[in-house]
């Protein structure tokens, strides 16, 4: 298992290198001169402009700049943010937690809700529950995440006043609510918004998979042995039906990031997605590139977790033998 994890980390290198190259190419091709932005619009003496250019190494050929950038990134230095006046790493660190919290909450909801509802459908295919949930599933899958966010916000925050309208924490100091509960309270709507599409997707996958597994002989055997229905469904059925769901969830991490950017925008959630978007508007390229890299690492880590979950769920899969 350790070997397998190690190999996956090695595979990460070309992926991240590709990401760095792509980001670098985009920035190089971008219209506008970053030095001009730094110097400002006032007419500056050309010697000063040249000295700024030299100080940041921007007078060197593009490939020298690229090699230097890659070297710095490899040492964990993502550069300096001109907009926030902080090292990029510090800017990102402040935001990463918020995004991970949002994404893992949504992921948890999608896993638990999707699997439970999918089993409910798959146990009685063709029943009313099944029909209704399948239609809802298709609807949930087609909902634009930002629109759902706006609707929930209008209904439950602005209308009923049950949840705060934006942000991650209340602004009032010394509130009666403990901070963790306060964050949780802020988290409910964004997490539900982000999760809906994946709950819908998981319900459909889980149902199909569960119906397939249900027709297998070992299920009949388990029933014939006189096992309790609960054991048959959850230990024999669900566990085997989970595999395709886990694969798709792993592949959907990248998608989840996109949803997170949109959700963060609707609810003003102080996360990484929103930060990357703002950094583009500010022409704060170091933050943008760093953010893209961090997100890529998260996506790959998600895929890796999905592979490991595989081995936990299905004891037939053992990674050592392949190493």
């Amino acid at each position: 298992m350790a070997l397998f994890v190690l190999r996956r980390f090695v595979l990460l290198v070309p992926l991240l290198l590709g990401m760095v190259l792509l980001g670098f190419a985009i920035v190089k091709l971008a219209p506008g001169d970053p030095v001009q932005v730094l110097v400002g619009d006032y007419p500056a003496p050309p010697e000063y402009v040249a000295s700024v250019r030299e100080r940041f190494g921007l007078d060197r050929p593009a490939w020298v700049q690229l090699v230097r950038y890659v070297g710095e990134v490899a040492r964990g230095n993502l550069g300096y943010s001109f907009f926030y006046n902080e090292p990029v790493i510090d800017v990102l660190r402040g935001r990463l937690g918020a995004t991970l919290l949002l994404m893992s909450a949504a992921f948890g909801l999608a896993a638990v809700g999707g699997i439970a509802l999918g089993v409910a459908c798959g146990r009685r295919p063709g029943s009313w529950t099944d029909h209704v949930l399948m239609v809802l599933g298709l609807a949930g899958y087609s909902l634009p995440v930002f629109w759902l966010g706006q609707l929930l916000l209008m209904a439950f925050s602005l209308g009923l006043g049950w949840f705060p309208t934006q942000g991650m924490r209340s602004l009032t100091f010394g509130a009666a609510v403990p901070p963790a509960l306060d964050v949780l309270h802020h988290l409910v709507l964004p997490a539900v918004t982000l999760a809906t599409r994946y709950v819908a997707l998981n319900v459909r996958l889980m149902r199909t998979s569960f119906v397939e597994v249900g027709a297998m002989e070992y299920i009949t055997t388990a029933r014939a042995k006189g096992l309790a229905e609960r054991v048959v469904v959850w230990k024999h059925g669900v566990r085997n039906a989970l595999l395709p769901v886990v694969t798709v969830m792993g592949l959907n991490f990248g998608h989840l990031v996109a949803g997170a950017v949109l959700t963060e925008t609707v609810f003003a959630w102080p996360g990484l997605g929103r930060l990357i978007f703002d950094s583009i508007l500010h022409r704060d390229y170091p933050v943008m590139l760093g953010g893209l890299l961090v997100v890529s690492v998260c996506v790959v880590a998600g895929n890796l977790l999905a592979d490991l979950a595989y081995a936990v769920i299905d004891p037939r899969i053992r990674y050592e033998s392949r190493a």
Binding site: P14, L15, G18, M19, L22, G23, I26, V27, A30, P31, L251, G254, H255, V257, A258, V261, G273, I276, F277, I280, L281, M288, L292, V295, S296, V299, V300, N303
Partner: peptide
């Protein structure tokens, strides 16, 4: 590679720049 990369963010960055 294209499948694993956060695609929407790339589209976003390109469109914004």
């Amino acid at each position: 590679w294209v499948l694993v990369v956060p695609q929407f963010l790339i589209v976003l960055v390109v469109a914004a720049i």
